[in-house]
């Protein structure tokens, strides 16, 4: 069981609103690994839209992403590329 943790920054203008949250959920659902996102000590499941919304992560927020599972590396790569491209926004 692999576990990877990385700090990522939200770059898109509107922050993590409903649409990027849905994109992120769709992406991580394809992986077997558990993906969690932490911000200011709050941890939520990245496979839950509502969870992601409660983070209220605005542009510039730093979040800690943890992928745990057999495909943790691939999951982290997918999540990182989503963050870097501003969730395609």
């Amino acid at each position: 069981m692999k576990e990877i943790t990385e700090e990522l920054v939200i770059v898109n203008n509107l922050g993590m609103h409903a649409r990027p949250a849905a994109t992120l959920v769709q992406t991580v659902l394809e992986f077997e690994s558990d993906v969690t996102i932490q911000k200011n000590g709050r941890e939520v499941n990245a496979k839950s839209i509502m969870g992601l919304l409660t983070l209220a992560a605005a542009q510039g927020s730093r979040v800690t992403v943890t992928c745990k599972g057999p495909d943790a590396e691939e999951a982290m790569e997918a999540v990182r590329s989503l963050f870097e491209t501003g969730f395609g926004e």
């Binding site: 409903a18 839950s48 839209i49 509502m50 919304l53 409660t54 209220a56």
Partner: peptide, 15 residues
């Protein structure tokens, strides 16, 4: 949570 209150996500319908 004060952000989402009583919103719910139902797969296939949305929020």
């Amino acid at each position: 949570s004060p952000v989402i209150e009583h919103h719910m996500e139902i797969r296939g319908i949305g929020i």
